[in-house]
Amino acid sequence: MSITRRDALRLGGIAAAGTLGAPAFGQSLPDKPIRLIVPNAAGGVADLTARTVGAALSERLKQPVVIENRPGAGGIVAGQTLLQAPADGATLMVATNAHAISKSLFRSLPFDPIRDFAPVGLMGTFAIAVLVAPQSPIRTAGDLIAQLKRDPRSGNIGTISVGSTQNLAAELFKTSAGIEATTVPFSGTPALLTSLLRNDVTAAFEIVAPLMGQIRDGSLRAIAVTSAQRAANLPDVPTLQEAGIAGFDVTSWNAIVAPARTPAPVVERINAALNASLADPTVRSKLLEAGVEARGDAPAHLGQLMEAEAEKWRGVIERAGIERQ
């Protein structure tokens, strides 16, 4: 049976609620620090989420959780590190949207992003915003769609690198809205925002979390978010669904996975500690400050979400004609 991304999150929340406060029975973890590998550099959303959740996990599992940043090659470096680790629960990895996308984005990988890793649990989700410059005459997503439908050459959409969630969200937006504007990829967020503020691009798709200060002070204007529901940190910004694009739902996420052969009781013990951590008001508040909405999940439902996301982005990549890397 197929499952939508929204259903996976909803069911995961219900399942997680049932595990909160559950005793951590089952096979013991090795008596040594737990490595939590992050496939991104320090300071990003995934890193901040890992450090916040890792500290809470350490308290509940009574073992140190050590964050190990292993950026590079679109998550391949981190994935290989986890793949080579013993499947005993002492080595975990943060999985992101890129983990699911990589299955269709790369010609070959040294591992299968779904089969070779055991889902442990979701940590949180965070929004992608559609942004314009403060002086732009475009006030709503409806304005943007109308302009690009009238004349596709009158504007374009900026994102970060080809194959990123932001880039694919823009491609999905164009298909869903029935527009043919050019998507312009940039090497990173600073270059993208510079181009947006110079009016070199009409609009930009970018993760909200690192841009909250600029949105709040008015140096960037968010006209929509790509998630199915409004973002908790941008409650006044409508969704693309509200702009008339039925069913549009792109939400970035961070989760924890383990080596595929990790014993189920170990996975369940870590999942119980993870969900209990995410129910802690202090942890939830810290994550929200970083732009992340805490969201627990059961291992099975995270697995379904990852499979659904991989299939969803495979279709987007094929329709956009993005060449495999």
Rank of each mutant, 00 (worst) to 15 (best):
R5D: 00
R10S: 07
L11M: 04
A41E: 08
A46M: 05
A50N: 11
A50S: 13
L57G: 05
Q63F: 11
R70V: 05
R70G: 10
G74T: 08
L83T: 10
Q84E: 15
G89A: 14
V94W: 09
A95Q: 04
S104V: 15
L105F: 15
F106M: 09
F106P: 02
R107V: 14
P110H: 13
P113A: 08
G124S: 07
T125P: 00
K149M: 03
T165Y: 00
Q166Y: 04
L168I: 09
A170W: 04
E171R: 07
E171P: 00
A177H: 03
G178D: 00
F186H: 09
S195Q: 10
L197W: 03
A203E: 05
I207E: 10
M212A: 11
Q229T: 14
N233E: 03
L234R: 09
P238R: 04
N254V: 04
R261D: 11
N271L: 08
A272L: 12
S277C: 11
S277P: 10
P281H: 10
L288K: 09
G291K: 03
G291E: 02
G296L: 03
A300V: 02
H301C: 01
H301D: 05
E307Y: 01
E307F: 01
K312C: 02
K312M: 14
V316H: 04
